[in-house]
Design a protein around this nucleic acid. Sequence first.
DNA 1: GATGAATGAGGATTCATTCAT
DNA 2: TATGAATGAATCCTCATTCAT
Lengths: 228, 228, 228, 228
Amino acid sequence: MATQETEQAQTRPPRKRQARGERRMAELLDAAGQVFAECGYSATTTNAIAARAGVSPGTLYQYFPNKDAIADALGERFAEKARATQRALEDPELPGLELREVLDRVVDSAVDFNCAEPAFHVLLTGPDTPCWITEAHGPLHTAILDRVTALLAGRAPGLPEARLRRSALVAVQIFKGLLPLVLAAEGAEEEQQALVAELKQALHGYLLPVVEAGAADSPTTVTTPAPK
Amino acid sequence: MATQETEQAQTRPPRKRQARGERRMAELLDAAGQVFAECGYSATTTNAIAARAGVSPGTLYQYFPNKDAIADALGERFAEKARATQRALEDPELPGLELREVLDRVVDSAVDFNCAEPAFHVLLTGPDTPCWITEAHGPLHTAILDRVTALLAGRAPGLPEARLRRSALVAVQIFKGLLPLVLAAEGAEEEQQALVAELKQALHGYLLPVVEAGAADSPTTVTTPAPK
Amino acid sequence: MATQETEQAQTRPPRKRQARGERRMAELLDAAGQVFAECGYSATTTNAIAARAGVSPGTLYQYFPNKDAIADALGERFAEKARATQRALEDPELPGLELREVLDRVVDSAVDFNCAEPAFHVLLTGPDTPCWITEAHGPLHTAILDRVTALLAGRAPGLPEARLRRSALVAVQIFKGLLPLVLAAEGAEEEQQALVAELKQALHGYLLPVVEAGAADSPTTVTTPAPK
Amino acid sequence: MATQETEQAQTRPPRKRQARGERRMAELLDAAGQVFAECGYSATTTNAIAARAGVSPGTLYQYFPNKDAIADALGERFAEKARATQRALEDPELPGLELREVLDRVVDSAVDFNCAEPAFHVLLTGPDTPCWITEAHGPLHTAILDRVTALLAGRAPGLPEARLRRSALVAVQIFKGLLPLVLAAEGAEEEQQALVAELKQALHGYLLPVVEAGAADSPTTVTTPAPK
DNA sequence: GATGAATGAGGATTCATTCAT
DNA sequence: TATGAATGAATCCTCATTCAT
């Protein structure tokens, strides 16, 4: 018992420390998210992030080795959050719903998420370097793509993996393309609603044929009209 | 006549100058386009542009007051080119064609254009500052949007201007969203074809209901399926 | 007695403290020595020292007011050790030996010492600031110089103090000049032996005339062969 | 002829430019030399060098990519100068002179050089990183070592290359060891003279046996007394 | 005493922009 | 007009040192 107490005495401070560290890290990521959202990736300075978090630059570098690492960590956090959101979302009886209904839920939640975390989109878009789309881009893309691919796979089991993945990618890019519109409409409730509706419409218009083509009972006919 | 000749004699050097100036400017914009395409907007340095154009930085600043101005001018040039392309495109009997057919042509030409001018997309995406998209982004967006709006207006005369513009905007954003995919597939002919097909599919899926809703003979009732 | 016991009861914890403090200090100096030897003076960070010692930076600063103080203390410790070594060395019948023999012993022991404590040389060379060398460089130089001066004084009693000191200084600098060579040869036993032999040779070549010039029975005439 | 004039008109500006560039570079190296000499390598900041040269930091980086490059270039310049000095020195009838005479001249010129360029020693000693002696250290060491080796080779043709090189290395290190003493005595003419005399004495004491051992007419007997 | 997070001035380096030639 | 050297503010990052716990 005495030993235990000693042990506890030894372990408690670390815990506290670690807790504080975690909090700092979270604060820094919060700050980074804000600044990224406001200024974009490359215009964001590490000092600005530190200042926003109310700490000195040195402190920032105690938690992250450099700017990219901040973005990575933030991306990881987003991926985590997104995974959680999506998990909560689909557990129920999604498979039974109509595509329109599914999109309704998924898009709403995704939009909510992005409105709450406007930096998400900045990171998704990447450091303004071109050629930033292909899958190799950190956990964010991969995580999202996996989710969407899985979702499609459930509804179009007849399609080959590659096909599914491509459609998922396209869907994600459509979302990404329209997201800035939605984000820019923040404040104009009406307009934003309308845009979200368009977004759903666009995704539905694109995905319905895909899903139908791969439906369990349908033959894997050609979905895309043979290009001439 | 004598006057004219004198005038000419006096104006020739200026003209030559001006002509040379124009050429310089063009060369600079060419260089800028290349570098922007390779490095992205913010990673591009003005010195790199000057070097690529084979001139000194000082010369560059004789033609453009600053970096943004270069991007703007390049955007303007793109807009010009794009306008020309599209003008050439639609002159014939577009209105009589099916939507799918129209999209086929428009998208193909747009994709070709973007493959030829990869900087276009960089500028379209903007200087990595968020809060872009809004039309205030130079002539590029406006020009394109106008074109697409007009195209839609011809096919959905029943829709109010605002509605048309919004749909055009959405369509453009879908295009912008998928463009990087297509661009990234440069070299993989097959894959790129497939992606272009998806892009057309997506635009068709989105625009068909819109156009149908605004068709001359249809009542303007169904705009967007009431979101629940 | 009672008083004494009380006193003891009161002083024991402090003593323990002090003892622990000494140990801490020793550990810190050990760590400092290692890191200095590995990285050089200015590339060594106080945090690295603390980490090597397994303590936090704060603790380090509880024992030393700043980086220089660490080097100073380490130098002091080295001086102590060196003094001890040399004391042990000369007690016997050194005076009776030939110069060559004496150098043999002294150099061997000095080389051993420096191989065992590679930080010694780093400190001897100083914090890479020029304008070192002068005796003001902490106890290290002074201690060594004193020793060597004394040694020379015994063999060249005819020479004035200033002359002795200068020769000692020169001898020490020769040693310092060749030391890095010897240290760099660590691992190449053969090569190292050869270099040590050269070192002895060099010192002998330099000191023999000096000693002879000041030998008890010789007139103090020839100091240095008139240059030219 | 007209062509020539045109050509000249085209080439002259570059020449001027290049000339100015060379001068700037020289000024920067001068400044670097001063600051290195005053503060040592690692305490020298690039900004300090720029300031000393009377230019902005940006200018410095137009000529050197980083701090190390400055040191390298300075070292190269020193090597050049040293080569020139030594070339001028030995052309005459050196080989016929006595070792003492040769050392007299060589050391004098080397000391003069080092007094004129105190940074030389700083660079020779290196960025205070330990293990900085071995030959692989830039052109400086190599150049000097080559010279000294050659000089020895001429006087001790009987010795194997490796032996010569080692002796040269030792001699150089002796010089380097005593140099700071000489440098520190700048201003005290008398003292400095005395120290230079000691330096010559030390080198003579070390090298005479070496040279004698390898003299053309002597058998290659053992020079260093077999270590015990 | 010990801890380690926090500090912040300072250093290397870049780049949009200017200006003497 | 063209040049390209020069500028200098701004960036990223480090590290000796402090301080609340």
